[in-house]
Structures are given as C-alpha cells and as structure tokens.
Design a protein around this nucleic acid. Sequence first.
DNA 1: CCATCTGGGAAAGTACGGTTCTCCTCATTG
DNA 2: CAATGAGGAGAACCGTACTTTCCCAGATGG
Lengths: 232, 232
Amino acid sequence: MAALTVPGGLPDDVPEWKRQTVDRSLQKARLRAQQRLQGFVDAAIELMTEQAGTDFTVQEIVDRSRMSTRSFYSFFESKENLLVAVYETVVASQVVPRLRALCAAQSDPLDAVRAYVYGLQEMTASNRPAARALTTFSLRLAETRPESLERAVRPQIELLTELLAVAAAAERTDSPLGAAQNARLIHNCVIAAVHAQILTPNLGDSVTAEELWIFCAQPLRVTETREVSASV
Amino acid sequence: MAALTVPGGLPDDVPEWKRQTVDRSLQKARLRAQQRLQGFVDAAIELMTEQAGTDFTVQEIVDRSRMSTRSFYSFFESKENLLVAVYETVVASQVVPRLRALCAAQSDPLDAVRAYVYGLQEMTASNRPAARALTTFSLRLAETRPESLERAVRPQIELLTELLAVAAAAERTDSPLGAAQNARLIHNCVIAAVHAQILTPNLGDSVTAEELWIFCAQPLRVTETREVSASV
DNA sequence: CCATCTGGGAAAGTACGGTTCTCCTCATTG
DNA sequence: CAATGAGGAGAACCGTACTTTCCCAGATGG
C-alpha cells in the first residue's frame, strides 16, 4: 500500500506558500525518487516478460535496475508489494484504456459490451509472456491479498458497469439483475474462462470467445430493438 | 502424483496366483503404509481446520501425526503434494457425493441443476475453516499446478455435465452450447462467485445464490414445458 | 537362535530467497 | 568547509522446505 503512494506527498492542510516552497526544494528529490521507482517497476516488467513469471529474485530486480536492495526496500515494503504495484499500473494504464477505446468505437451499446468481452478475453488470454505472467499473478493475488486485487480490478469493472447501465437505459437488455451484479458476474465468467484457457490450454472442451459471449449475453436478455429503433 | 497412488499397487498384467501371493505377503506392510498415509492426511486436515489455511509447516504435520520428516517425504514428494492429495480426497469423497445426493433428490432435471448450483455455492462458501482453506488453496493450485486442479475437479464437472445432458435430453433447456461447455461455464461462474464472496466478504455488490442461479440459468434458455409435460 | 537386512524414527544439516543491517560515499546546503 | 542525510554495496540474518546421516527394532532366512 504505502509503496503505491509516491513518496514526497504532503498533507492537504498546509499553507499554500509553505507547500510551494517545500515543493520546490523537494522537486528534484521527488523527480529522482519517481525515476528510481519507475526503474524498479520497469525492471520487474522486463523480468516478467523474459521469464514469463514472477519467480525472479529481488536481487535480479536490484541488479537490473542498477540499484541497491536498501533502496528497494525503502520504496516497497516487500517484493509482493512491487508486484501489486506493477499489476495496478498495467491494469490502469494499459488494459482499461484499451478496453475503453474498443468500446467507444461501437455505436450500439450492446456491441460495446461485446467488444469488452472479446477485448478482455483477447488481451489477457494472449500468449505474450507479460500478459500470461500477470494473469497468473492475479490468481496468487486473489489468494493472498484479495483486497489488492479487488482494488486493482475495480476500474475495469466500473467500465463494464457503465456499459451495461447504458445498454439497459437504451432498453437493449432486459435483465432481472442490476448492472453492477451483471458486471461482476460477466467479469468473473470472462476471467475464469481466460484462466482455464491459459492454464490448461490443451483441454478438449475449452471455451471459445464466441461461446463465452453467447453464454454471457443470454442473461442480459437481449431485446431485438434494432428494427424498431431503425423504423422510428 | 506418485503420492496419490497408494504404495503397494501392482501392474495389471501379473498372473493372478502370483499377485495373490505377493499381495498376501505385503498386506500387513501395505496396511501400515495406508494407515501412516492417512495419518498425514488427517493431520493436514486438522491443521487446515484449526488455522484456516495452509500455512502450517511440515514440522507441524510431522509432530501431529507422530511421525518423522523422513517418512513424510517417503510418502509425499513435497508439502504441496500432500495438499493436492488432501484436496483431491475431499472433493472425491465429500463434495461430489453430497452434490450427487442433492441432485438425485430432485425429480425435474432442471431442479437438479439448480440444486447443484445452490449446493456447491453453499458448500464452498460456508464459513467452516476447512472449506475456506480448501477453496483458498484451490486458487494457489490454479496458479502453480493447473493440471492437478483440473484433475481434482473433473469428477465434479462431469456430474454437472451429466445433469445438463439429462436436462437437454428432456428438452427442459434449449441452449446453443453443448452440455460440456455449459458445465464448464457454469462451474466457472459458481466458483468465481464463491471466491469473490469468500475473499472479499464485505463488498457492497456481492452476488447472492439466487442471483447466481438466475444468471447461470438464463444461458440454458429454460423452456417452460412443465404444463405441457403435465398435460401429456 | 543368530545373522542380516530393511523400513523408518530422530535430528542435524543444506539451500535458497526475502529481509535487514552496517558501513561508507558523496551530493547538498547553510 | 563542515554537517547532514540519502542512498549504494553487499554481508548477515532468518525462516522454511527439503536432505542426509545415523541408528535401531523388528522381520526374515538359515
């Protein structure tokens, strides 16, 4: 947690002039700190990509980022903390924006939901080592720090909730459940399917993206208003 | 893996008389071995129950079961292996039979499926420490040994597949997907929901068993043939 | 009844990786 | 320039899964 707050932040109840002065005197330090922090994160991502996992040692991170273990532990409480930071970063800065872009490209609200499902499945089920490593890591996170995982994934689920709410408002769906519930259930479905796909790829009856979408779409009770809205 | 095969087993292509003789000469040894193996498993279950997790050390297992680390490692290749054995044992001897009983009590094939969903959710989401520990462990297993998890869970999914096939044959459902696909998807949904429920219990929009069933049932496209079949 | 062999108990030892500590350098600042 | 404090290098520490060594009791075979 502490690791995710960039060091150098000040409490909000400090007089403006004081804050500015201190800010100025700290700007360089803060910049360097951010650079070093970024160095750790970058090194971790590199290692995850190369080794397709999170089995690298802290020593490797330290060597790679040309820093010391001391610095490492002054930034991150633990190795696990670094990994959480990496995960949060990637979700917030890569996954969500891409999904948002994909969905924004659709005019029909239901197509947006479909784009979300396909996009997420494609993104996380890809064979890129980094994606694989992160997806696998999310399982460990679910076991050891569910709250962290929950927090990291929340923006993603919020996006989906929005999409579903829009679809419901446009009367393109008629689900007995609320947008939030459906979002969580659909998200679970997609993620679980992706896990199955990644972890046991050579399984006969694995689920394709289409099947996944068919399954997830049914509970939304899609109403075929296309013709109606076209005629209006 | 080796740990899961009870020691003393013989290949199948041995003459019967020979097998019997050897069997006889080995029966005592095998019995003792089984007892010791069971001792380890029992100790592990006890510890999981008491500590609601798998954080106990091998030393604790050894102390509890009044045996030595040497014996432990002569039975189980690793601590992880023991845990897998425990998991498989519990699923095969507890979970599946109970689910089967629940489902058998239903006359309508679709009610059987509902009983499965409710039963599984209730069983694994219960607050009993052992259930909690095992459910949590299954996440680790998914990360570190997906094949083992797959194998342990297979009988459960097969049961669900049967139920769905029966429901489809009775034309109580009209899903575009096959029974195997639906089984896997529903299973995923339930398990993921249970994980969410266990791991982040104090989350506003968590999913109830009813909602879960509503969501899972829709993709089956339930056909209301109750009246029809009654009238026939 | 004795020799031998084997399974298994007790417990010290190893490997390894995360975490911490100590010492030291060097840039910054008054 | 002297004081201060951040941070680099890496040795040390520690917990824990795993290994190995030693040895004995009890079965087996002559």
